[in-house]
Design a protein around this nucleic acid. Structure first.
Length: 258
DNA sequence: TAAGCGTGGCG
DNA sequence: TCGCCAAGCTT
């Protein structure tokens, strides 16, 4: 559950599914993952995106072995203290793996609550403590029922109450949805400014890391020079990868961290 | 709080 | 085609 939730941070279910199966077959427990070098986690991450998540998941496995005897903790605060585990993932693991009663708030749930309860088209850009409270009061008292309700809120947002083309005709909440009843007004505020990708440092980092993932041997700098013409930007991107611990330099060659 | 961080699917 | 969006986290 923890591995899948980390993979699902900003990556769609359809792309996570095969990667998750391979990952769990190779590293069935935190101890298995912790015993391998972090570079192997980055390599196995393949093209899921945001490879820092792979590095943090490896660090998470190490922390679980060191602090929790290799057993994933069932306590939200202990989970929150692990690398790469934030407000959403900690509660998702506690609720879905350990069947506890916690509000589990992601972008889907923020949108569902914004529409049904608040009558507005969009939720906020990030989960706030106020969001947690708003969802908490909607949960059934029974822990198992609450865990199932949390799954249902997310699923409703993912399948029916979608961001761009909601299928209100098929929605079981249409009769009580404040947004629907108000005529589904468009969002009022300024829309979130869109992030560019093409030509950004992120783009170049992705190109560089793809070369290193594909190579079993240390890669000479000259080969990295081929992926991006702008030397200044390429150097900045590579330095950033090294700074983040995703890449290691050894005598003019580059590898994933061993 | 806002910006930075990959990659791909979909309308 | 191209911009939006995706089961966020960290600093």
């Amino acid at each position: 559950m923890l591995v899948s939730e980390v993979m699902l941070q900003q990556t769609q279910v359809s792309r996570v599914d095969p990667a998750w199966r391979r990952w769990m077959e190779r590293w069935p427990t935190p101890a298995h993952l912790a015993a391998d070098p972090p570079g192997e986690a980055i390599r196995a991450w393949d093209r899921l995106g945001y490879p820092r998540r792979a590095l943090r998941l490896h660090a998470c496995a190490v922390a679980i072995v060191e602090r929790h005897d290799g057993v994933v903790p069932d306590d939200v605060d202990a989970l929150l203290a692990l690398p790469g585990i934030g407000m959403y993932t900690a509660r998702a693991v506690a609720a879905f793996a350990f069947r506890q009663r916690h509000p589990v708030v992601d972008t889907n749930v923020r949108r569902v609550v914004a529409r049904i309860v608040d009558g507005v088209a969009d939720g906020g850009p990030a989960t706030t403590p106020a969001d947690l409270r708003a969802v908490e009061v909607l949960l059934p008292e029974d822990h198992e029922a609450a865990a199932r309700a949390s799954v249902a809120f997310m699923e409703l947002g993912a399948v029916i109450c979608t961001a761009r083309a909601p299928r209100c005709e098929e929605c079981p909440m249409a009769g009580v949805c404040a947004w629907r009843i108000a005529g589904a007004p468009a969002s009022s505020g300024p829309s979130r400014r869109t992030q560019r990708y093409h030509g950004t440092d992120r783009h170049v980092r992705g190109l560089l890391l793809a070369v290193l993932r594909a190579s079993d041997d240390p890669v000479p700098a000259a080969r990295l020079d081929l992926v991006w013409d702008d030397e200044v930007q390429r150097g900045r991107a590579l330095a950033g990868l090294i700074e983040d611990g995703l890449v290691r330099e050894r005598g003019g060659t580059f590898t994933l961290p061993g």
